[in-house]
Nucleic acid binder design. Structure first.
Lengths: 352, 352
DNA sequence: ATGAAAGCGCTAACAA
DNA sequence: TTGTTAGCGCTTTCAT
């Protein structure tokens, strides 16, 4: 009964069994230096026999890299992030890297602790979907120390020099809004987390980091391009929680004369759809509706929902690829990667 | 040359800066041995100053445990698993353990490689939702070598002695079926992955490891208890893929006189609902429908769907807890943990 | 081609 | 309370 795996098989054990020196065995097992046919054969047989598994910890110690990547995200149970993580891990595995996932719940204290922890684990690199809040500058510190970091989905404050992989939020929202405009709508409501600087969002100097702000800007831009005046009453402030969003939309939408509604993220899309059901709105006869992210249910309800879909799996892969490139060329500067969204036209939007 | 280590501060660096010996510094930094107030203060200041982060790799080497856990699952992007993983990681983090997630896509070759890889990483323990296929005996080997493993959701063949955390599949399906029986239904169709030994499932000696087989057995059991004869024509073999499942259900259900339908997993539930839409069935007037897993869309469609819900987050936590207990008491035998499911009664099922 | 030996950064047993 | 020293398992010079 070998209960304790303190007795794990080491290179030395293999070497002894193969009757060669430790370094010869090490060479064969790590497939690096040179070794004679006979030595190689003896070592491999001994390793097989003893059931040798190289100790990645020890290897990491001496090689100076752990082959571990940290992924710090808000919540793996959100479909968007779980699809992204799938793309991410697929690509990382192909490169021989494993991924440690940490959920921050958008809490900057948790984020800070997580980053420290991953730094201690000596991860080779980091994918970070930062909490939008100032305070912690740990990410910046780690980056300055030479830890490769790729931002995902959004750029936190003070993280200006790190590369970002994300949906082109602004352009995606512009597409979605233009879809409605092309159908003849002019009274277009939008449900989103409204930032403080909403009114000044079109000033090119006004910063916008959170996805919702960028998406709102895209909406405003599309209106402007079409010569439609933005009506503040049509901008509905919806919390990032489907129940609360449903309440907000139900209440505020009823007071408008909107002929169309655009929800700028998956959670608010969920809430908005519930609000529309509650209001008894006939879609698309009373109101055209375009949501965000192609969730399961959007093709299960009737009418099926037109959505702005983002390439979740690809986004994850792109983030992985960028990080892998940084690992290989640490100094080479990397440009942001913004992937386009796509309107999936279905039955919830129609000509006015 | 060693990459990327130029900046990493070590205990020795701190010791030098604090003008004490390496071991004194190590003692205060790891908070173990004893040290004088003055020494402690000097060391902590020096550590702060230099920005010292302990190297978890080195610590793992000498302590013999990595504080890393492996989670080997079919696919993180499936809502069930992402919710489970959330519960799992929450609990693990609280215990100071991080989780490496690996997707197998139910491919036993990938599973085998993943297990070897995690063994090399010297994870302290493993959560494994095994592919149901014989072949690889790596999990067994690792377990015999003393690596704590907890099975999740299902018990693979040849893994009889490992503890399992799962939904009580059989009982859950029995509950769901009884819900329909209680409403007066006797012609109850079931959509599931039908195992080869379906006909003999009620023999207590007949083995059933895959969740779908256990759920089918629960269905049969409920019928038997109610004195209803099981009708093979009502057992619909549906692939684990919502499109194919929709086709199978649409075709086979039409040929029956069923007044109710029970879908035994989330994917088949999705497909079944599409099939019912395609058939133009009025729910619940033409047919009562009960699905599996409380997915977002089940309350978004109309009528809202009655489902058998499993406690996903709790399942993840339970798996983590069991593994943590094994870590602390490696020899103590552990019993399986089967959590109950619950019928969420909504509008898709009604009195016949 | 092979072997001896020096780390990688940490913990822990043992002295002092 | 401190410091010295010997590992943990692997990679990697540097001789031979």
């Amino acid at each position: 009964m070998t209960i304790n795996r303190a007795d794990s098989v080491t290179v030395a054990d293999v070497a002894r069994a193969a009757q060669v020196s430790k370094s010869t065995a090490a060479r064969v097992l790590s497939n690096r230096g040179s070794a004679s046919q006979t030595a190689r054969k003896k070592v491999l047989e001994a390793a097989e026999e003893l059931g040798y598994y190289p100790n990645a910890l020890a290897r990491a110690m001496s090689e100076g890299r752990s082959k571990l990547i940290g992924a710090v995200i808000p919540d793996i149970s959100i479909p968007f992030f779980s699809a992204v993580v799938r793309g991410l891990t697929d690509r990382m595995r192909a490169a021989g890297l494993e991924v440690i996932i940490i959920n921050t719940d958008n809490n900057s204290t948790i984020e800070a602790h997580s980053l420290e922890l991953l730094a201690m684990k000596r991860v080779d690199g980091l994918i970070l979907a930062p909490v939008i809040a100032d305070g912690s500058d740990i990410a910046r510190t780690l980056a300055q120390r030479g830890l490769p970091i790729v931002l995902f989905d959004r750029r936190g404050p003070g993280l200006a020099d790190l590369p970002l992989v994300a949906l082109d939020h602004e352009e995606a929202a512009r597409l979605a809004t233009r879809h409605l405009i092309d159908l003849g709508h002019t009274q277009i409501a939008v449900a989103t987390q409204v930032p403080d600087n909403a009114a000044r969002l079109l000033d090119s100097t006004e910063p916008a980091t959170r996805p919702s702000a960028l998406r709102l800007r895209g909406y405003l831009l599309a209106l402007q391009e079409a010569g439609i005046r933005a009506d503040p009453a049509l901008i509905i402030d919806a919390p990032y929680n489907h129940l609360a969003a449903a309440d907000a939309v139900a209440e505020q939408l009823a007071a408008t004369n909107a002929s169309a509604l655009f929800a700028t993220d998956s959670v608010v899309t969920h809430g908005s759809f519930q609000a529309l059901q509650r209001l008894g709105a006939e879609i698309p006869d009373d109101l055209s509706f375009i949501g965000f992210d192609d969730q399961d249910w959007t093709t299960l309800v009737s009418p099926q929902i037109t959505v702005l879909n983002q390439p979740m799996h690809d986004l994850g892969q792109a983030a992985a690829e960028l990080l892998i490139r940084r690992l290989a060329h640490p100094t080479e500067p990397q440009a942001d990667v913004l992937l386009p969204g796509e309107v999936l036209t279905r039955a919830s939007t129609r000509q006015l």
